[in-house]
Design a binder for these strands. Structure first.
Lengths: 220, 220
DNA sequence: ACATTACCACCTAGGTGGAAAGCT
DNA sequence: AGCTTTCCACCTAGGTGGTAATGT
């Protein structure tokens, strides 16, 4: 998944162990198509039947609150597929649907059975964050030349497609629309976990930067 | 370091956490040179002054006994250098000296301060294994065409130097001398850790395969 | 004389979008 | 017609020994 979600976490108990995981949930029950002349995604019927949900457990799991808070937690190894029979542990999504990634912070002593193929448990000891500006629409081929250009310009692995001599003003115009020229780091805030026993903390969530339009994800 | 040391571990407490680490210690106090006409390493004076010892902590650390025992533990990411000012965390060795790798299994509750730059602690809760057939002589350039050929034939990254059409009988002759046509997996055996409280276990060590001659390691 | 370094071509391994073919 | 798959060139990133230059 590119650009990758990156989060910064504060307020964990430094000595407590946590898993961090991501899943991706449908935004609505619709299927979409892209209409060229209006440059918009339009509803094109009801969603396909749901697929078995999967969870991406961050590879640094299990780690202490201290370890998690000292780094930017990046989900750049998370992979998407539209193959419902996938056996590579990738997250399975339908193409041409809208989705929302969620970040879960799971206290170790709470996670009885965290698994890539089971839904993330919920309750005390699990905090879930989602950022509305990270909603995206899945595709198998890009529908919009501006998205393609952004991918090529931002992703080191697409360097071979860069046209260094091309018009830069057009690019700058895109940057005004798509504000992730650097994929932003989001911040997940907890009340001090020490208080959390008595008082159910209300996590506050702040965001840096925003997607004014959903990035498209190409399934591979 | 190629070929990499690979070990199989049995007899750990499945629920106990362990570090696994490797260090490399001098075999003697001598410096060597290779004599072509006799195809032998000869003593060429006393060893250079020792360098600050370093420890390679296996990247899967910390893990449970269960996790360690389920896999072959490979040290293929361990790197050597002759640069005494190295800041990449590589193990520092003198060229043209003889060395012996050691594998350490360290119970978590025993390791007060395991660090890449501190000697491995010793005592109850730490078991150290070494295999005499893994002694090697360090070089900056290979001294022996047979070693070069083995490296090229066995290391996927050296495929570019393979001469697929060359004489195979010569190669087979080498295989009889150097028995690591596949780098062997060594077995580290513990008495059940559950007994270890009362009775100081005497680890028994078994080896599969052997180096009849030391492999040379090229510093990079 | 011999050991070491710097740079190189050549690999492994894997992440990109393009183009053409295939599917529905 | 629109979406998906397959294969490809082109990258990043990094592990090989060879070779020529450089120490010592």
């Amino acid at each position: 998944m590119f650009p990758a979600m990156r989060v910064k976490i504060v307020g964990l108990d430094p000595h407590q162990q946590y898993y961090i995981a991501m899943d991706i949930v449908p935004v609505d029950n619709k299927r979409y198509r892209y209409v060229y002349h209006s440059s918009k995604w339009m509803v094109a019927g009801n969603a396909d039947s749901p697929v078995p949900p999967r969870v991406y457990i961050h590879p640094d799991s299990l780690a202490s609150g201290d370890t998690w808070m000292r780094q930017v937690v990046s989900f750049d190894k998370l992979k998407l597929t539209n193959n419902e029979l996938d056996d590579q542990g990738h997250i399975i999504l339908h193409s041409m649907h809208k989705y929302q990634p969620r970040v879960h912070v799971i206290r170790k002593d709470f996670s009885s059975d965290l698994s890539p193929t089971k839904p993330v448990p919920s309750g005390e000891g699990v905090k879930t964050f989602s950022f509305p500006e990270t909603v995206f629409t899945t595709v198998t081929a890009y529908q919009n030349q501006q998205i393609t250009r952004l991918k090529i310009d931002r992703n080191p692995f697409a360097k071979g497609f860069r046209d260094s001599g091309r018009n830069r003003t057009g690019l700058e115009a895109i940057m005004e629309t798509y504000a992730f020229w650097r994929p932003p780091v989001r911040t997940l805030t907890f009340e001090d976990f020490t208080n959390m026993q008595k008082q159910q903390a209300q996590p506050s969530v702040s965001t840096h930067g925003s997607y004014h339009r959903p990035p498209m994800l190409k399934a591979s």
